[in-house]
Each structure stands twice: as C-alpha cells, then as structure tokens.
Write a protein that binds this DNA or RNA. Structure first.
Lengths: 129, 129
DNA sequence: CTTTACACTCCACTTACTGGAGAGTTTACA
DNA sequence: TGTAAACTCTCCAGTAAGTGGAGTGTAAAG
C-alpha cells in the first residue's frame, strides 16, 4: 500500500511515516519507477506497533528495541517487563514533579489579585531565589 | 562577575548561561579586551528569575514575557496571573494523560509473568491496534 | 485532457540546550 | 618566574522527534 494508506491505518501522519522509514524504523519496499514506498501488511503492523508504543511514552530508541524483541520469536518477556517497569517509575517521578509544580503555581495564583496594580506575588515568588 | 560565578549563583550551567546570553535573554557587558562576559547584579537577578521560571515549566518565550513584565514597573498582575492559570491547566491536562498512561502500563506489567517464555501481554497489547 | 490528490526529495526550522575542538586568559603554587 | 590548572571564549555539530515548505513528479477522477 502507499504511504497515505499506511499512515491512515496507523494513525500517523504521512510525514511521520516517511520519517520512520528514513531512520530505518520500518523498511518498506520502493517502486524503482516511481520512487513510491510500498508498505506491506507487516510494515503496517510495525507502524501500528510503534504508534502505540510512542503513545505509551516509549522513545524511538525503545521502540526499536521493542520491535526487535517483538520480531524475535525467542524473546523473553522478562526484558519487555523490565522496560515497562522502568517506564512506570519514570512516569511516577514525572507525576510527583508535576503535582508539586501545580501546587506551587496554584498557590501563587490564588494569592494574586489579578488586577491592574503592579503588586504580584507570582513575580515576587519567581524573583525570590 | 564572570560567567562561572553567575552560573553558580543562579544554579545554571555555564553553557546554559552562555546560551541565554546568545539568544538575548540576558545582556551582560563584554570586556572588549578579553571577550569575557561581565554579569551585573541585575543580570544575575534575571538569570535567577529565569532559572526558577523554567523550573515552573515556563518556556523561554514565556520567560521573556515574564521578564519584560517583571522589569516593567507599570505591568499589571492580570497578565501574569493569566499566564500562570494557563500553565496550571496545561499541567492538569498532562497529569490526566500521564495517570492514564501509568494505569495502562501497570495493568500490562501486572499481567506479564516476566519469565523466559515468549508469551507477553505487553507486546500483545502493543500490537493489538 | 485537465484538475485534483497524492507522492517524492531536499532543506530548514523547532526547543532548549549539550558536547567538543581549539585557542586565549587568569589564578595558584613551587 | 615558570608552569600547570582552571577558567573563558567562539564556532560547529548534534540531540529528539518530528514539522513545514519548495519544487517536482505520478495517479486517479471527471
């Protein structure tokens, strides 16, 4: 299939699919006459896999690792689980950080009158190092 | 003061401070003999301000806006509050997304034995589009 | 037969830095 | 006074993961 269809079926943009092909994440055949990429069902499956993994915050690098585990029939689920657990703890750290950030910002916003006068606890807090 | 001291006092790296100077976020004087940047106390205050605002997830662009509000004695706190509230709602959206992500990943991890056999619900889920 | 939709390559740009090469400057110590 | 370490400079390139656009070629529909 052409890139447009592959993109649609994997919920990616054409640009992104082309980019993935450029960096070798998927390897569609090329029509030597037209230069058009030809995506097989297997290529599509890989694109769909990557699209989902990216949504799960796996990096391209990790997607490559997952893809190779995925295509290796002898892969152990141990490695995949380890990668996933690592992702979870990264997310936990990010959550804590964001919650803290939100807390501080909302405290500042609450104490800011938001009128036309220059007193502003938000700026005061930012400049209070 | 030299860049090293300015960096230390603002908890930024020398590279980052130089970068901020390059993009005009701060404007230290330059010793025309040595080419060394000379940071005033005011420059330092700006760096500290930016360092903190960046921690609060304000982009460089927003830092510039904040800095100009900050240095403008006639600024209203209305604008600052609006920017802050916008940030909070961005953070909220991010929190929801991350929580959902974590939920899905931990469900997958829980159902993965993590042994040496190839069955792996994580990979199955990723390939199940 | 022409218009429209789709495809291609190549280059530049994005964010917010980071790393390194190669060179000059300042400071500390023997 | 010499020299070595520590600091500074500029410039170039790279990072992640694409996005945007120019200019051009191809395919399908009316």
């Amino acid at each position: 299939m052409n890139i447009g269809k592959a993109a649609k079926l994997s919920n990616l943009t054409v640009k992104t699919v082309r980019y993935y092909a450029d960096i070798g994440l998927v390897k569609p055949l090329k029509n030597s006459n037209t230069g058009y990429r030809d995506f097989s069902d297997d290529d599509l499956a890989q694109l769909q896999f990557v699209a989902k993994a990216r949504k799960f915050n796996f990096s391209i690098q990790e997607c490559e690792e997952l893809l190779s585990l995925y295509s290796d029939k002898n892969r152990s689920s141990k490695e995949v689980k380890a990668l996933t657990l690592e992702k979870i703890s990264e997310i936990d750290a990010k959550l804590i950080e964001l919650k803290d950030l939100r807390h501080q910002l909302s405290f500042l916003a609450k104490n800011c009158k938001g009128d036309d006068r220059p007193e502003c606890p938000i700026l005061d807090a930012l400049s209070d190092v």
